[in-house]
Design a protein around this nucleic acid. Structure first.
Lengths: 235, 235
DNA sequence: GGGCTACCATGACCGTGGTCATAATGCGCG
DNA sequence: CGCGCATTATGACCACGGTCATGGTAGCCC
């Protein structure tokens, strides 16, 4: 474990935050007083859903998945958060427990920000609230999109949709126009995102690899032909 | 069509609104200037998703469903709005088109409120924004719940979940402890809520009727045994 | 390197639920 | 009242995908 060489500083993480990066230097200092960097390694649970937590997180490096454990015991991943994104705020404003568990997808360094500190700042800062409304609205829209995908039945569609969405957020252009997902996703992770089983996720990725749509290897996916994926989505 | 006898007044609808009912009398007057009551009959489309509309709605009497049309053409109902609830606000704040179509479930009288008027008031009214954040957050949580239900596979569970949720919002206690849903739901409507087909919805409601869990008739459902439904949800 | 564990892969089996067909019933309307 | 349409109902068929079982492979730690 030599990941300690590049631990991001609390300040740099806060500055890179999509939500809080635009705060004034004084406000940032204020939040930093009681914020601490923390680490979690792959698979580690950062918090369980329902629990009351005094902080929320901002991803510095690595990836976190927000997971809903259904009554049947199977896990559904609602979202994957990458560097600069904050997670666990939903419960902070409501004051109720977090509706989603947070689990590290890769080794992740994240900043723990005190909810209480954030809330006092939030109370005094109207632009921040406006920003948050817009963000929540967008997430709601995304959730509605995802819902209609989930209901659409065919697993192929769902997986294609998940891949396209992931590519938008975390795709890295490679030689030959292909897109590598920088999230280290196992087939299990992919299955949880699409609401299906590992076996089915494997079957579909294997087939698509043979058809030249994907390049799949150990915990890694590269999209070779986005257009073919969109085709699968469209028909 | 003799529904005209009890058309609610614009003022009464606004006053009954869960979102705007707590505004000051002056603010209500201000919103009323350019608000008009409108009617839609069962099945009628109030607006299509994606379209730019200058107003949002508040239900006076009757019910409206918010529908997402997926690429496959099948409709998924995200929410059912009843008296006092507002719909179409999501797009108002973003300024983007509405993500969901609105369609009347029954004959419905609703108030059309100008988005522009609302937005100016919204800009000056911090408590209103706070209220809206809370509301949006709750909806997001509901959407996440629904997502995990949708992904859970078995249609039986999804239908049971939908019925329980509907009972919470629109259930009327009847003699013998049963709950009648005051929403005039056809099996088709139920199917769209649960993300399944009419046939399956009919099969399940028929079976449950035989088992004494439900009483199903023409566009109407009465839950006889909530505990049995919760049992189905739980296992 | 050897062994362990997580991950990937593939096949067999079969139940759920979608699709299609067909019909009975309820409700509105001329 | 009787016609027509929407809704409810039920059966036959079968594909998709979940479950189980088994084996190969890649990374990782000692």
């Amino acid at each position: 474990m030599n990941a300690e060489v590049d631990v991001p500083t609390a300040r740099s993480v806060l500055a890179s935050s999509t939500l809080l990066g635009s705060l004034s230097p004084e406000q940032i200092d204020q939040l930093l007083v009681r914020s601490r960097m923390a680490q979690a390694s792959r698979g580690e649970i950062i918090w369980m859903d329902g629990s009351e937590i005094s902080y929320f997180g901002i991803v510095g490096t690595g990836f976190v998945k927000m997971v809903r454990t259904s009554s049947g015991g199977q896990e559904l991943t609602a979202e994957i958060m990458g560097p600069g994104q904050s997670f666990g705020l939903l419960g902070a404003i409501e004051g109720t427990g977090c509706p989603l568990s947070a689990r590290a997808v890769s080794t992740v360094w994240y900043l723990r920000v005190s909810k209480a500190d954030f809330l006092t700042m939030y109370g005094q800062n109207v632009p921040l609230r406006d920003h948050l409304i817009r963000r929540t609205t967008l997430r709601l829209r995304g959730a509605i999109d995802m819902m209609s995908r989930m209901a659409s039945g065919r697993v192929e569609h769902r997986i294609a949709a998940v891949l396209v969405q992931l590519a938008e957020s975390y795709g890295v252009e490679e030689a030959g126009g292909s897109m590598r997902l920088e999230v280290p996703l196992s087939r299990q992770d992919l299955a949880e995102l699409a609401g299906t089983t590992v076996e089915t996720a494997i079957r579909i990725t294997s087939r698509w690899t043979k058809e030249g749509i994907l390049k799949a290897s150990y915990r890694s996916l590269t999209i070779q032909s986005t257009s073919r994926l969109l085709e699968i989505l469209g028909d």
